[in-house]
């Protein structure tokens, strides 16, 4: 693997997780528990799509085959997406979404904090900008996690189950392969073992406020690095890619 191939893959990982989580968040539009939340969740989706566009555009520049952000978003198949397994989990109920976003946003928060000093200028600039956004996403999801966890008996039980169900997808966030090794040596990527330590601290702090129990570390799902996904992703991208696929000659 060349450094260029590694960097391309790294950008797709970053871009895809934002894209897929953004697509999920935009599904909340007109479905929120209160009108104010429709706005909050679409705001988060807009931030995530913005992040995806930056990274997919950069991927095109690295690859040097003339691909645009849309070529990456609309013309790849399931087995070519490198988003986290967590980001593609269906929205479920509001508590499921909040728990998923919390776990993913806490990860993004620590990832971008560290990536802000990446030796790759594009990635560090992207991290600086994204960090501002995910700081807010983390705050939004953490505050809701606390409200639901320390709310009614019903909400406490519901969101504890959400957390328990999502936990097995968190291991995937921290897996690394030769892409990471190569880029860490170059000072471009970060060691996810370090991110994991910070991530756990954040999770512990918020769960304590939320009076929720951290799930046991049991079996962890895996797949992100090899573009092996759950069945849900295929449906998500089939819907997303419908128009360019149905009218291959058209420009939008």
């Amino acid at each position: 693997m060349t450094a260029k191939e590694a960097l391309l893959n790294y950008c797709l990982r970053l871009g895809d997780s934002s894209l897929i989580l953004g697509q999920r968040m935009s599904e909340w539009c007109s479905n929120g528990p209160i009108l104010e939340e429709d706005i909050a969740m679409t705001n988060i989706a807009l931030d995530l799509f913005g992040q995806a566009r930056t990274m997919l555009t950069y991927a095109g520049e690295i690859e040097e085959k003339g691909k645009t952000e849309d070529d990456f978003a609309y013309k790849r198949n399931e087995r070519e997406f490198y988003n986290s397994l967590l980001s593609e989990r269906p929205n479920g109920h509001f508590g499921d979404t909040i728990a998923r976003n919390f776990l993913q946003s806490a990860y993004f928060f620590h990832l971008y904090t560290t990536l802000s000093s990446s030796k790759d200028d594009m990635i560090s600039a992207h991290a600086v900008k994204s960090l501002k956004e995910v700081t807010y996403h983390l705050r939004h999801s953490a505050e809701w996690l606390v409200r639901l966890g320390d709310g009614t008996a019903e909400s406490h039980e519901k969101v504890q189950i959400s957390l328990d169900d999502l936990w097995e997808f968190t291991g995937d966030l921290f897996e690394m392969n030769e892409v990471d090794e190569l880029l860490i040596k170059e000072g471009i990527a970060v060691d996810l073992n370090e991110i994991k330590k910070e991530w756990i601290k954040t999770v512990d702090q918020v769960l304590e406020r939320a009076t929720l129990k951290k799930p046991e570390n049991g079996y962890m799902q895996t797949g992100r690095l090899n573009a092996i996904h759950s069945e849900y992703l295929g449906h998500l991208i089939a819907e997303m890619q419908f128009l360019p696929r149905a009218y291959p000659d058209a420009k939008w």
């Binding site: 209160i34 104010e36 706005i39 909050a40 705050r139 939004h140 505050e143 409200r147």
Partner: peptide
């Protein structure tokens, strides 16, 4: 805006 607590009021105001 509508909100049930201070933090929510602040976030909702920011978003709107």
């Amino acid at each position: 805006v509508h909100a049930t607590d201070k933090e929510m009021a602040l976030q909702n105001a920011r978003d709107l």
